[in-house]
Design a protein around this nucleic acid. Structure first.
Lengths: 243, 243
DNA sequence: TATCACCTATAGCAACGCTATATGAACTGC
DNA sequence: GCAGTTCATATAGCGTTGCTATAGGTGATA
C-alpha cells in the first residue's frame, strides 16, 4: 500500500500526496501522513518542494497536465461547436473523477494563489473557439466566449461535485452547456414578438395558450380519451373568472 | 480593535472569526487569534460552538442570511426576467464584497459538508423563476432553470474573485447572465444547434406556464382528484421533448 | 445561606508544519 | 586511490496548532 518501490523519493512524495488528497474528503492531509506513505522523512519533502504548499502545487500542476491531456485527446470532429461540447463534458468528467483535486484547482482560486490555471484553461477553450469563429459560427469574440463558457462549466462541475454521488443529475450539465453554446453561436434567429398581456389571470392565459397550442400540434403524449378529458378541464379553467 | 465590549462572548467570537476570516487572504485562521481578538479563552469557544468548524459554520450561516436578505431586498419590478438579472448581479456583488466568505460558501462545497446552502440558494432563484414561468416566459422547468442559472452564476463569481481586483471585467458576468436567461426564456428563435431539434414547441411552453400558474393560484375549478390527474398529464406534456 | 446550572479560566496534551544539524552517497580533479 | 564538493536523506527538536480535563466563578432560585 506504500510507495517503497524503486521510484525516486520525489515521485513517491507526489504520488503519496495525490493519493491521500484524493481520499481525504476535505480533511486536512498532514506532511507526516505523506512522508510516511512515501517512505521518507520530513526533510526530504522540504528539500524537494520547499514547503507543504509547494508539494500541493506540484500535485495540482500534475493534475492540470492530465486535464489538458484529456481536453486534447479527442480528434477534431470538423464541427467546432461539437468539439466544444466534448471539451465541456470532459471538463465535468474530470471534476467528478477527481473531486478533491478539482476543488483545489477551481474551487479555491484566489487572486494571489493560482491565476495561471484558469488562464491556461481559458486559452485551451479559446483555441477551440477560434475555429468556430473562423467558420462564422460565433457572434462574440472567442476570448469572451471562452471565459464565459469556462465559468459556467466550472460552476456546473462544482454544483455536481457538491451533490451526493448517487443523485447527480448530468442533465444540469448538458442543459447549461447547450444554453451557453447556443448563446454565443451565430446561427440563432431572434424574433422576440410582443407578448399579449390582457387583464386575465396568468392561469387563464396559460390555459388558453396551452389549449390553442395543443389543438394545433397533434401531441401524442396523451391517449385520445385522456386528451378529451384534459381539454374539458382545460376549458373549465380557461373560462373561469376567479383570480 | 478588539471586541471587549459588553456583547456576550458568543457574539464576540462570531464577529472576531468573521473579521479575521475576511482579512485572511486564504491563510489559515487560528483559534488563538480568534479567542484573543474576542477577548476570551479557548474553552469558551468550544463551549459555544463545539469546535473550530462549528464556529466557522456559524459564520457561514450568518453570511448566508445576509446573502438571502440581499437577494430579497429589492421590490419586484413586474418583469420576472428583469428580477432574475438583479438577483444574478446581487449574487456576484456579494461574492466580490466578501470573497473569503463566498469561497467557503460556494467554492468548497462537498457532498458531506454543506449541501443545504446550495439547495436554499436554488430555492430562492426557483421562487423567482416561477413567476417567469407563470407569465409564459420560460421554456424549461423552473427548477431546472434555477439550478442551471445558479451554477453559471457561481462559476462566474468564482472566476471574478480569482482575478486581481484591478482587472475584474464585469462584462463576463453580464454576458453570461444574459446568455443563460436568454437560453431558458421562451421568447427566442428556433434552432438550438446541429444535434438538437428546434426549440421547445409552444405546447411545452404553454404547459410549463400553466403548471406554474396553477401551483400558485389554488384554483378551485377542478376537484382535488381531477386536479391530481390533470397535473400528471400536464407533467407528461411538459417533459415530452426532454429526451 | 445553600444549591445548582451555566459559563469561563488555568494548564497542558498530542499532532502539526517546519528546520538546524549531521550523515551518507556520488561525482570531481589529481 | 584519495581529498573536496555537492546532492540527498535522517535524527531530533522547535514553536504553534486544535482541543480538553479540571476547577473556579457567577447569578438565580429555594
Amino acid at each position: 500500500m506504500s510507495f517503497d518501490g524503486q521510484l525516486p523519493p520525489k515521485v513517491r512524495l507526489l504520488r503519496a500526496a495525490a493519493e491521500l488528497l484524493a481520499n481525504s474528503a476535505g480533511a486536512p492531509v498532514s506532511t507526516r501522513q505523506i512522508t510516511q506513505l512515501a517512505g521518507v522523512t520530513a526533510p526530504t519533502l522540504y528539500h524537494h518542494f520547499g514547503d507543504k504548499e509547494g508539494l500541493f502545487d506540484a500535485v495540482v500542476a500534475a493534475g492540470f497536465e492530465e486535464y489538458v491531456a484529456g481536453e486534447r485527446d479527442f480528434a477534431p470532429s470538423g464541427q467546432p461547436l461539437e468539439d466544444i461540447r466534448r471539451m465541456w463534458d470532459n471538463h465535468v468528467q474530470f471534476g467528478l473523477n477527481q473531486p478533491e483535486l478539482y476543488l483545489v484547482m477551481f474551487g479555491n482560486i484566489r487572486p494571489e494563489s493560482r491565476p495561471s490555471i484558469v488562464a491556461d484553461a481559458e486559452a485551451l477553450m479559446e483555441e477551440m473557439l477560434n475555429k468556430a469563429a473562423a467558420a462564422g459560427q460565433l457572434n462574440v469574440q472567442p476570448r469572451e466566449a471562452a471565459r464565459s463558457i469556462l465559468a459556467a462549466n466550472v460552476g456546473v462541475t462544482l454544483m455536481l461535485i457538491a451533490e451526493p454521488a448517487g443523485e447527480r443529475n448530468l442533465e444540469l450539465s448538458t442543459m447549461t452547456r447547450d444554453a451557453m453554446i447556443f448563446a454565443v453561436s451565430s446561427d440563432q434567429g431572434r424574433d422576440a414578438g410582443p407578448e399579449e398581456d390582457s387583464g386575465k389571470s396568468s392561469v387563464v392565459v396559460a390555459a388558453i395558450a396551452l389549449n390553442a397550442a395543443l389543438q394545433a400540434s397533434h401531441s401524442d403524449q396523451l391517449s385520445s380519451s385522456e386528451l378529451k378529458l384534459f381539454l374539458e378541464w382545460l376549458h373549465r379553467i380557461s373560462n373561469s373568472s376567479t383570480n
